[in-house]
Design a protein around this nucleic acid. Sequence first.
DNA 1: TGACAATGTTCTACTTTAGTTCTTTTTCGC
DNA 2: GCGAAAAAGAACTAAAGTAGAACATTGTCA
Lengths: 218, 218
Amino acid sequence: MLTPKQYKLLMYIDNTIKETGCCPSYEEMKTAVNIKSKSGIYTLIEELIDREFIRKMPHRARALEVLRIPKFKPREILEEEKKIKTALKTASAQIPLYGKIAAGTPIEAIAYENETINVPFDLVERGQFYALRIEGESMIEAGIMDGDIAVIKRCEVAENGQIVVALVDENEATLKVWQRQKDEIWLKPCNKNYEIRKLHPSQVRVQGVLRGIIRQYN
Amino acid sequence: MLTPKQYKLLMYIDNTIKETGCCPSYEEMKTAVNIKSKSGIYTLIEELIDREFIRKMPHRARALEVLRIPKFKPREILEEEKKIKTALKTASAQIPLYGKIAAGTPIEAIAYENETINVPFDLVERGQFYALRIEGESMIEAGIMDGDIAVIKRCEVAENGQIVVALVDENEATLKVWQRQKDEIWLKPCNKNYEIRKLHPSQVRVQGVLRGIIRQYN
DNA sequence: TGACAATGTTCTACTTTAGTTCTTTTTCGC
DNA sequence: GCGAAAAAGAACTAAAGTAGAACATTGTCA
């Protein structure tokens, strides 16, 4: 419809006519639109006349008339669109939420479950994640309570001291502190009422490490 | 009726004219519709002209005019819109994150701080929220650890047993369990090494209740 | 009235930006 | 793999914008 300069000029003319009641001179337009020569303004105005946005009485100074200005979107719609854009930017990640890990069922096997949970992006930057709802008190001294949601990053190896989801005897998944000794893996709870489990490395494999906790009060 | 690309381009042209008042150039359309060559835009526009959705003034740059918008959207566009809608649902909220609450500074007073954190929508459905980084161990038995992020819903009243942000003597903000006795307010820590504070109701006011905990491991 | 000041018009020359056309490459369904 | 359709790219043409100067028109005022 219009080029940017034409639009700027049109709006300037329209505005000054509405504000001051009279049409600006070419000199004034020059500074307003930031052009250094009157001829530029002249051609711009000719263009606007061609496109039927303004009309001029020939050989009359300051005798322009704005015929129409382009239609605009209503403000509500613009605001709505802005909201959508920011919402998309701050979108959180959806990751699957598994309840209690069924005994005898590795994480992979229940990946089809389609309950999901939103977690802030900060928690799940790279990698594959899933979430578990904590049952029991065995990690309570680490501040992990019954009912909390544990955000787990899927991986197969862990470092000593990390809290991991460990699958024991391909049979039982559990959240514990991982510690590798010379010939054994220790799975340490964080609750003095529970005992450390000492297992042969072949009996246990890592299914993920704990990356975050989300708790909800109501 | 229209191919997805044609539709997208048509909407883009209509939008920019309505937003900026002037017609986009082919270069701008290229990036908007995600096409790498101007010729692609050219043919799309020719097609749109053929189908009488837009018109162009011959031998003019940036001189397109949208004649009409189709009533039906291409299937792909509908699917995309669906995706956006779900993204909106699962979007996370940004809430301000305050560090340690400075002694003598009520929450309102530091609301200008502009560090923010994303939290899942589930935690912050209605109401005004802010987040605090926990310092100290006074709530450790409630599973709230040093360094955790507490998601707080702003409000002025609390029920017995809720964990609240309490401002004592307009001077010191603290996260404790709220308990109203006959003539006193008790602020109860969750750590046996700390003592219950017993205060006159005039000495203390609620600045929010705890709605969630987010913890991040790394 | 005639000088002059302010404003508008036209022209030329040039740079930048935009649009068109055609050829080559890629993609995709069969 | 083949052939049609879509996309990309290069080369070219056209329009928009910039600048300066010359000139025309109008109104003002000594």
